[in-house]
Each structure stands twice: as structure tokens, then as C-alpha cells.
Nucleic acid binder design. Structure first.
Length: 283
DNA sequence: CATGGTTCCTGCAGGC
DNA sequence: TGCCTGCAGGAACCAT
């Protein structure tokens, strides 16, 4: 599932391959992933545009045009960008194809179609559609102390807070679990009871985990996440808790547990990651 | 307004 | 064998 490191791997691949290219053809094979004003309008808006180096905030990616507009993209669960020769076989679930002026194609592939593409008028610097998305920890302007304060002010729990893209962007279920394990913090730790030091540690750890993953090309479990050439990353080998139910914690040997959480999963070491003592009750 | 639950999608694994 | 259910999950959307 593409989270920040996976999206960044894709962005880097695209940067090398689409920067300066002009879009001279657009084919929408499936309407659903086009999240803007219908496929025909999208096609018209994209035709003839010259792409600059793709940019990223959190899990969002956008292609600025040389005229100030942009195409905004999100990979969702299973989205991929591929650069291919026009004659090559289409990957299953290819949704949109862009012909580039160097004779190659940029293809958007997405099995589950949680991802999508949209046109963003004036969005080259920052698409207005994502102005509510917080900075990610790799952004030069990311303010860790402000983020710590934001988290501690919430009436929620730590994992919900770091998954909230309006608080800090780029973190999904995998890196949330891995970060909380490394920071020895339970996913349900109440945000209001976090010390500033613990909140800071969780955020610093999240950046570390994602940086480590980036060095290995991201996390891949199957064909659902690959880079622009269709290759997988290797970080799945380094996972300590995510998907490791029943295996021994690499720190203490306790069996990793899977809890249902937010209609999905949370993996944790029940010994390393504990809840704070309950506050004295009113009764 | 803040918070948390629901929903969109497809393909695959596991049970019967 | 084949059908059915559950599960994977980002984020928009909706209800409280």
C-alpha cells in the first residue's frame, strides 16, 4: 500500500522520465479514476500540457505544468504509474494512458481504484484540492513542535492522530504500526496523556522508519505496489510488527498481536507497547 | 467544530 | 469444485 516512501520512489522515477515532456495524447480506459469533471473534460485539460518535475506532499503527487496548472494524483491502495513503450502489453487494470512527446507512454494502473487523477487549475505550486493536507516530516518547513502540540491538543488516540493527514501527512497503517513499535507506544495511547517527549519520539521515529524504507525502495507485498518499472521494494523484510501476528517480537520475544482497530488492523508487541495506567476513576 | 463510523473498489484467501 | 464471506485500506463523506 503506497504510503510516503512508496509515493516518493514513484515520484523520483517519474521525475527522471516525464520532466519536460509534452502530453500529446490521452486515453481514459476507465472513468472512475478520473476525479475531475468527466473523462472528456479531463482529456481536453491535459492535452498539449508540458510537465515539469513531479512534486509530493504526504501521499499526494502532482505534475506541475509549465503554465501554472497541474495534474494531481493519488495512488490510493493500488495505484501505479508506469513508463512504457506504446507497443508493450498493457498491465492489467490500466486505467489512463498518456502519450508523451518522446514516443513513450505514462500509464496509470489501479486495481482497486481508490486512487485517482484530477486537473488542478493554478495548482503547480500546491493544488488547492490538497491545501488541507498537513506537511509531511520530510518537508523542509515541517514543524515538529507545532505537530507535537497539535497532537496533544486532540481528544483522540495516538494512532488515529498520526494517520490523520491534516495533522501530519504521509503515514499509513504500515508505517504507523512500525513507528509505534519502535517508539514503544501503544496505538490507543490517549493523545492528551502523551508527554511532549513521547509525542516527539513517535514523530521522529516515523520519519526514521520511512527514511529507512525509502533506502530500500519502499514496502511491497505483492504486485500492488511497484515502481515505474514494475519492480518491488524490499522494506517488507524489515517489518517488525506489521503483518507479523504470532511471530516473536525482535526486541523481547513476546508474540506480536493483531488487534482490530478502525475497521482494520493494528499490530503490536503487547509487552513493549503498553497503555498508560488508567487515571483514577470518578467512582 | 471535532470526532469517529461508513463507504467506495477489486481480487484473493480460507471455509464449507 | 465452486460459491460465499471476510479482509486489505486512503480519504471523502456523513452523522453525532
Amino acid at each position: 500500500m503506497p504510503e510516503l516512501p512508496e509515493v516518493e520512489v514513484v515520484r523520483r522515477g517519474l521525475e527522471k522520465n516525464v520532466t519536460g515532456r509534452r502530453v500529446c495524447g490521452v486515453r481514459v480506459l476507465r472513468d472512475r479514476p478520473v476525479r475531475w469533471d468527466g473523462p472528456q473534460a479531463f482529456r481536453d485539460a491535459m492535452l498539449g500540457r508540458t510537465l515539469l518535475a513531479p512534486r509530493r506532499r504526504g501521499k499526494y503527487l502532482w505534475f506541475p505544468f509549465d503554465d501554472g496548472d497541474a495534474m494531481l494524483a493519488h495512488l490510493g491502495m493500488s495505484g501505479q504509474f508506469r513508463i512504457d513503450d506504446p507497443g508493450s502489453e498493457l498491465a492489467p487494470n490500466t486505467r489512463v494512458i498518456f502519450d508523451l512527446d518522446d514516443g513513450r507512454q505514462l500509464r496509470f494502473v489501479d486495481q482497486r481504484m481508490f486512487g485517482g487523477l484530477q486537473f488542478s487549475a493554478g495548482g503547480a505550486e500546491l493544488p488547492q484540492q490538497i491545501s488541507h493536507i498537513a506537511l509531511d516530516p520530510f518537508d523542509e518547513e515541517f514543524d515538529i513542535e507545532a505537530t507535537v502540540a497539535k497532537i496533544r491538543a486532540k481528544r483522540s488516540t495516538i494512532k488515529r492522530a498520526i494517520l490523520d493527514q491534516g495533522v501530519i501527512s504521509g503515514i499509513g497503517n504500515i508505517y504507523a504500526d512500525e513507528s509505534l513499535w519502535r517508539a514503544r507506544t501503544h496505538y490507543d495511547f490517549p493523545t492528551q496523556r502523551l508527554t511532549a517527549a513521547r509525542a516527539r519520539r513517535v514523530l521522529e521515529t516515523a520519519k526514521d522508519v520511512m527514511a529507512d524504507s525509502l533506502l530500500q525502495g519502499g514496502t511491497s507485498f505483492d504486485e500492488l505496489y511497484v515502481d515505474i518499472n514494475g519492480s518491488s521494494g524490499y522494506f517488507s523484510r524489515s517489518l517488525n510488527v506489521y503483518g507479523q501476528e504470532g511471530k516473536a517480537c525482535t526486541r523481547c520475544g513476546t508474540k506480536i498481536r493483531r488487534d482490530a482497530f478502525m475497521n482494520r488492523s493494528s499490530y503490536l508487541c503487547p509487552k513493549c507497547q503498553r497503555l498508560p495506567k488508567p487515571l483514577a476513576g470518578k467512582d
